[in-house]
Design a protein around this nucleic acid. Structure first.
Lengths: 227, 227
DNA sequence: CGCCACGTTGAGAGTACTCAATTGCAGTGG
DNA sequence: CCACTGCAATTGAGTACTCTCAACGTGGCG
């Protein structure tokens, strides 16, 4: 309960995929290097432009990585949750953060210093490979976003968002854990445009809005064809 | 001259950063695994949707990675040149390519099979780290593109493009190696809009268009402020 | 039950797109 | 050397989309 992750028997890192290759012994060693931090829902974990020389691993809760313009418009890069990490550039260099991070729920996370990370990778090179796997997937997702933003209309991106959420959740009953504003900021549009598009999809009979936090998907095909 | 890279004394891989950590002996071993291929300017090296289980390392020339809609609009993800690689997802899985690759010049490249790559990483784990370094940088660039596409006007993206090209080339005299169409497809707009914005910048006295392939930058500040 | 944040709808404006016409440039052959 | 040809780039006109700003609903929580 002191500097570990709040579990009794096992450190949180037992459950993080990128550390899955470590032995029990190595995990215990790693545990000693971690610093655990707590953030309340809505608080900012780090600010774009700050210097950072550590990796952050989320133990509990959800965060958004985003950037903001002077006039307050926001683009979300990704939503991360338990066992995800960010700040990976600081493995190699003191990173000037290119995004801010906000806690969407209460969050518990731990940080690992650059030099500890180096040591860790040296003793267990497979970690680099595990991180690499995550990074290639992330790059692919990022390029998917670039394709959508560059080539598709806000309407198509809205459909794409629904399809993606469906795939993550499985089933026809989407439960939204984000506000309209955040959803809009993921697909690079405004909450008004998103709202209008959802209404249009409803008018077309493709979806059914059930309260503000639920969407029932009625026609997967139509949405997929739109994308 | 058989299955190596055309050099007499040293294989091409001597010059590729991600293999910089290999010993002379290991490089010679690697050389035997490579398959070298040539592509003429304008030819397609691989198609989006194809399965691929190899990494491609560019030895000579330049390529563009892009995706295309049914109606022919195109989004370019990145331009790669000598010593760059692509297809890194196939380190982990047989990859359904999420982009097409076209040779912008005559291109010589070599391919490395997934299983050979595994072997290579096992004998020299630092390679995974070198690739990881490249991938984190690439992800950062990708997120920069997402920010620009999501938050900035075509005009601002045009300014951003000029600033970036300046940084790459150094100096006030930009020499464009891409068509207006390709440049537009990098920043997610049309050639017409790009052309109009360049003309506007010229009218404002920020740049001077000199033929179709050269741009003289007159006011770096103004461009940077626009971004 | 009423408040307040969140979400939706409406009107109007601006940006960027499409399609079409014109201009500019470079390579080729007379 | 110059005119011609074909492609690339620019310019123009009209349209469509999406944004902004504002008003109005709604639903969850005290």
């Amino acid at each position: 309960m002191d500097n570990n992750c709040g579990h009794k028997d096992k450190a949180c890192v037992f459950h993080v995929p990128i550390f899955a290759g470590l032995s029990e012994h190595e995990l215990l060693g790693l545990e000693a290097l971690l610093i655990t931090e707590m953030y309340a829902k809505g608080s900012i974990i780090c600010y774009e432009g700050e210097d950072s020389d550590q990796i952050y691993v989320i133990q509990q809760g959800r965060v958004k990585l985003f950037t903001m313009t002077e006039d307050g418009r926001e683009q979300i890069f990704r939503i991360l949750e338990e066992t995800d990490f960010f700040g990976e550039l600081s493995i190699f260099q003191t990173e000037k953060l290119s995004f801010s991070v906000e806690a969407l729920t209460d969050v518990r996370l731990c940080t690992i210093k650059q030099k500890d990370m180096h040591q860790l990778i040296k003793t267990q090179p497979s970690i680099a490979l595990d991180i690499l796997r995550t990074m290639t997937n992330r790059l692919q997702r990022a390029e998917g976003m670039i394709r959508d933003l560059g080539l598709r209309s806000a309407e198509a991106r809205t459909a794409s968002l629904l399809v993606n959420l469906c795939q993550e959740q499985g089933g026809d009953e989407l439960v939204l854990s984000l506000s309209r504003r955040d959803l809009a900021n993921i697909i690079g549009t405004t909450q008004e445009t998103l709202s209008r598009n959802l209404s249009r999809f409803q008018d077309l009979g493709w979806i059914k809005l059930e309260g503000h936090r639920k969407i029932r998907i009625l026609d997967h095909e139509a949405l997929r064809d739109m994308v």
